[in-house]
Write a protein that binds this DNA or RNA. Structure first.
Lengths: 375, 375
DNA sequence: TCGTTTGCCGAAATCGGTTTCGGAGCGTTC
DNA sequence: GAACGCTCCGAAACCGATTTCGGCAAACGA
């Protein structure tokens, strides 16, 4: 019994294989394969013939059939750490859109996995490597000392970071110059007349955190403002922590009249703190932040922030990773981009001096202001 | 001379193959394969020996090597439509987490792709089928008449819907009974004393929309309240539309004192509308909604809503799809779950009658209230 | 006792590609 | 004119699994 007629539609039987193309042209499979893969020992004439025939017959190689010999599955890996703390990631969709779009443009696919903890992210990573589910990985949110980097370095698997890291050996990356954004934010507030400008950094384990603090300091220097360590708040990446950091900064003897946040979500916590202290953002306290999450637009007043284009980031990261997998040296695959300022209403000239502000706050602080968790 | 492309990261030399296991045991590959895959013509003793040896040597079959013969790549496909309108999908991360967790528990992976339009989602779908990137697909946000379903039905590719559809042939699904939530929301508002309760549905192209309207009507009936077609607002799935729908409803001669929304984001638009009209949500206008997006917790007052567990949804969908791929009949793979009420501050007893409310609104409406787009 | 079944496994084909090897054909060179 | 070198392609091995086929024992039935 033979497979006589190609059943179109069953999505499997009627598939055009390389053998079909070869038969159609009266050449061997190996010729077709080499012609299609750019080998140099194929004449230009043959290459054209093969390409046309492949096109005409609608031949498309099966990635996993190629993979068995080449070891490449034509797939980019993405392992997300999703804990309960901040499972809501507004830009994830955009990021993935950019990633998949760029990947499929080169006929690659994207394989995605998740894990709750840093350790499990690592095991997942090596499992995926072991099972050859991906040829390389995209590492979002890189840490100063990132175990994922060590893992992949040891396994000699290509990867690209969204962010930078302490030891750049073997590392390709794409990153936004958050430090420049912080510098501009600080300078901008200074230009508006603020003299006491604080900074609330992100998680110290992240590489960006240190960089952004430096950017903040450059901004101060640029505006000839002194650096006061007191004005570096406690790290905050979520609202609650932003609330706490803001409250602490405003409780200083000479509180800041403006705060530069490294993370939008933390900045939104400042709105709550201001509210609780009877202050109005954009009036009594100015704020500039970074990320560009949609909620910022709906805050009152709107949050002035440096927005990152996460879709573009996804696109670039995919491009870089495929290049890396093809063997381009990591040193040549490092790209930096700028965040773009979105002006809304949270940054205005100071209405009060630090001293006046302090007096106003003092009375409110008598009754202890607590964060109340929204349900 | 041939083009030798240097592969970055060979990452594959030390792999344990089925041949290694066979050699170790002094049997053939076919024995190992059959033993591991539950063939009945293998003695229990041999099966055990093989299983132990595989475990001991750390053998793990290569999915794509199996795929070449079986046609199955052990991967679930997810194609997201990501347009500009609502690229921010707060539950996407949770959904993906559930999906990947359940998938990897059975040693499957998840392949993800995106497309901007409905048509391109369809082409992407058939491309993935053609390239065998996935053995089956998860279809989120099913429409009343869903082209994706037609496509996959024609291709005879397994799929499972997150939602229901008009023609259930060949369809497996998981869905939340949004209609029950709407009914409960309506009954709850009625129990609080509201007599005029409106409903703002979601997009009419979605299956859930019709169902939720019915749920709303059941809720009215349950509370012995008459159904007034006037109180069905225009469909809204984003803030702006929710703003418009609310404004229109409140402009009625006898406006509602409470609104049941099918979509949280639309309900957040109602906050703006209330604000613009000088009304206070939870006081002059009560609102109950559906989805459970995080922003709802930060609204003032917090949005009472029926939350869906999207992580669980992802898990169940993965389970159902793998079962479907294994050949379980779709009729036996249909699952419904309930949303859970999250009580916050937006639903309270009415402070004003409809007539009083109308009078209060009338004055404000003189000056035209317009939606202002947050930047 | 002699077929006949049954249980269990080995040999080999197979899936759809890639890659190695070698060898025709042809032009150069001395 | 023989040796040599190139260009270009065919033959066959190979990748890591699955699956078909057939056959050897042991168990069974008459």
């Amino acid at each position: 019994m033979q497979t006589a007629i190609a059943a179109a539609g069953t999505g499997g039987r009627g598939r055009v294989t390389i053998a079909d193309v070869a038969r159609d042209l009266g050449v061997t499979k190996s010729t077709v394969s080499r012609a299609l893969n750019g080998y140099t020992d194929i004449s230009e004439a043959t290459r054209l013939k093969v390409a046309r025939a492949a096109e005409r017959l609608g031949y498309r190689p099966l990635a996993h059939a190629q993979a068995i010999r080449t070891g490449r599955v034509r797939s980019l890996g993405l392992v997300l750490q999703i804990d309960n703390e901040d499972s809501a990631r507004p830009f994830l969709a955009d990021f993935i859109a950019g990633l998949t779009q760029a990947a499929s443009a080169e006929n690659w696919s994207v394989t995605i996995a998740t894990a709750p903890t840093e350790a499990e992210v690592n095991t997942t990573l090596s499992r995926l490597v072991d099972e050859r589910k991906a040829d390389g990985f995209i590492l979002p949110r890189t840490l100063l000392n990132d175990a994922r980097v060590d893992t992949l370095r040891a396994l000699e698997v290509p990867f690209v970071m969204f962010g930078r890291t302490a030891n750049p050996r073997d590392c390709a990356w794409y990153d936004i110059k958050g430090e420049d954004a912080m510098q501009q934010a600080t300078a901008r507030l200074a230009a508006l007349g603020h003299k006491r400008i604080a900074h609330v950094p992100g998680g110290p384990e992240y590489t960006y955190s240190q960089l952004r603090i430096e950017g903040y300091r450059r901004g101060l220097a640029q505006a000839d403002l002194p650096f006061d360590p007191e004005l570096i708040g406690s790290p905050a990446t979520i609202r609650r922590a932003g609330f706490g950091a803001t409250k602490a900064l405003l409780s200083l003897r000479t509180p800041p009249t403006a705060i530069v946040f490294a993370i939008d979500r933390a900045a939104l916590g400042a709105y709550r703190a201001a509210d609780a202290l009877g202050l109005k953002i954009g009036h009594d306290l100015s704020v500039i932040s970074y990320d560009g999450i949609p909620e910022g637009a709906y805050a009152d007043p709107g949050l002035t922030t440096f927005a990152v284009d996460s879709r573009l980031a996804g696109e670039r990261l995919a491009k870089i990773l495929t290049a890396r997998i093809r063997g381009v040296a990591p040193e040549n695959l490092r790209e930096l981009a700028q965040a773009t300022l979105v002006e809304r209403g949270s940054d205005k000239p100071p209405q009060l001096t630090s001293a006046e502000l302090a007096r106003q706050i003092k009375t409110t602080l008598q009754c202890d202001v607590q964060w109340e968790e929204p349900k």
